[in-house]
Design a protein around this nucleic acid. Sequence first.
RNA 1: GGAUUUGUAGCUCAGCUGGUUAGAGCGUUCGAUUCACAUUCGAAAGGUCAGAGGUUCGAAUCCUCUCAAGUCCACCA
Length: 749
Amino acid sequence: MDKVYNHQDVEEKIYEQWEKAGTFQPEINPQGKPYTIILPPPNANGDLHFGHAMFVVEDILIRYHRMLGDSALWLPGTDHAGTETQFVFEKKLQEQGKSRFDFTREDLYHKIWDYVQENRGGIEKQLRRLGFSLDWSRQKFTLDADIVSLVKQSFKKMYEDGLIYRDYRLVNYCTRDGTSFSDLETISEEKEGILYHIKYPIKEGGFITVATTRPETMFGDVAVMVHPEDARYKQLIGKTVVLPLTNREIPIIADETVDKEFGTGAVKVTPSHDFTDYEVGRKHELTFPPVIGWSGKFEKTGVVDGFYVKQARQKTLELLKEQNLLEKEEPHKMVVKICYKCKTVLEPLPLEQWYIKVKPLVAKALESIEKQEIEIFPKNFAQTLNFWYNNLKDWNISRQNVWGIQIPVWYEVTDENLFAVSFIDKQGNLKQGILADLLKEGSEWEEILAGLQRVIARMEAKVVFEDNKIEDKKYLPETDTFDTWFSSGQWPYVTLKTTKAGDFEKFYPTSVMETGRDILFFWVSRMIMLGMYLTNGQVPFKNVVLHGLVNDPLGKKMSKSKGNVVNPLEVADQYGADALRFALVYGNALGNDQAMSYPKLEAMRKFTNKLWNMARFIEFQARNLYPQIDLNQIERKVVEVNNLHANDQEWLKKLDVLSQEISNYIDAYQFNLAAEHLYDFIWHEFADKYIEDVKTRNDEDSFGALCQMFEVQLKLLHPFMPFVTEEIYQKMPGHQGLLITARWPGVRE
RNA sequence: GGAUUUGUAGCUCAGCUGGUUAGAGCGUUCGAUUCACAUUCGAAAGGUCAGAGGUUCGAAUCCUCUCAAGUCCACCA
């Protein structure tokens, strides 16, 4: 053995050895109890980052349970990550001076597909690099045909059960990315804005002054609203306002949502472009005239048509000033929602979208947490999740993306329905118009379908599900795709249903869902709701285990824009995957964020070296004891307790205690404590004291005891530091088989 | 505005189902060794556990409040 442990020579070789021996597959322990973890699928197009490196926690659990003799399955997969990936791809297009509007829908989809395929192997290689014992024979991708088919079936089932509906309502729309977003996908940003006080003339005489931050949307006003108890305005309720610039007449209405203290106490109501106003509009049965289009440009105002929001605001204010209707401008702190990808200010726009009724699903989910069918670690996150569930609104699952699973719905085209369609024809020209007219003009139906960018329709959709079989021209397919989380929200279900026969029956419900605490809402909450729905109330996993974020050495969040991202693979190359793994769990309680630390990594690297040298000492002892025999041929004397040195008997007891402790810690997801105790015992108890002591004696019994005790420690440490322990184990005189499949201390074969 | 997390040695963090002298890594000081250890071993210094109050025989650990930092959620136009 070399004087120093060299992880570069070991890690790749060992991983191959494990994989060749089929040890990652649950079938290695055919008789064992099922123990299942589904890997949170990383973006197929992405790179491994520290968030993924924290999956080491899952590997610890899987390796531990494999050693316990369980049929342990850790199922890998990747996610298509709809908006994310399309965003990245469009950026690439932009660099080439193109945009997605230069391609038909289908072309774009295939281009992204190819792009993802090119990069897809990367993440898998990287997961292997960290020693993750994933069962690659069961790997899945969210756009695998069988997965897609199941996801569509789920949608259909939910539709038929009345859990899904289509509705015309305001969505968070990014005019730049050309898609809507769920509430979760928006970022609220505080901004210095201006509150404008605008005088609206009253038909019966006088003025009422409204306060607004968005004067330009006044073209979409349908009412002015005051508080019913407001003495200033009480007598005005029911009167009519003549909207400036357009002279449209709108009523003054009363509603309690108005805060008398804020602004002037009078509010303009613009139901198509403001969420609160939309609610008011519904309640008071007002109309919803949209004045901003999908591109973010104004339309149907007769005044600022074709202008973007900023210009429209300027122009509107100018015109109001000319008429002396702008009473006052005051600075005002406001919160705007921006796109989490491109940071554009989101526009609330009315759109026909598919929604999931969350109430019934939430009720089941809450019950499962209440009854502890699902337990969350650390525990306090259960409260957070409860709170979130209780305030959850219906879930918009429509995305106007190409990269994703198309919503499997066809609409019947009837004469009453007018479709505004835009598409690229064979000559590459952009065509827009009413569908029926375009067909009359001789456009090819296939062309329209392929190039369909968006169907804007207000209609009672007659929904048809005949998947892919509809060729009749009277049906028009939905062009929207599912929110990525709608498919990944079914992940434990759809993966196990499509891997190997019997997998679902054996491995569902899964044992643990371990993931970053930042996607508790996005993902975990949805998996609980959808998973329970799809399996008649069976929870998708029994325990949820959440890890925190890994920040840079200064404790700042790693981000590309800050340029402080550290690549975990480079760390693994430098310190060894084992040291990296150990550093991530050592000294950090589960669920807490941590700052990555180079001194800690260095300390853990030294620990691997310490282990190596403990093994060298054993080799050294063996050479002295059995000078004639090849190390591999040594038959170790099986330890008879009675023959042992009194001292050794005590050490054996200590090891029993340690084994029990480590098991308990892992069972309780207290990985940091397990790691700390192992580190401390192995180094500062066993190496510093026992080995120092045993140096003075060298007989067969002592040697046997030494080997046996060291092996116990290798086993206990293996889930945390799999490579170095495996390598050493195989060098131990008289060892048997692989450490990865050895039995955990105290467990019988 | 609500929720939530964190505040412990110079630095990074454990410990917090309450119980003997509060721990680790790195750093610092002193000594030993090169005998398995590109080192390692032994020893030491360093903390009124953010602050105040309370519960208790006993609190870093439970409760209340205050201060500070962070995160998430929220329709104040």
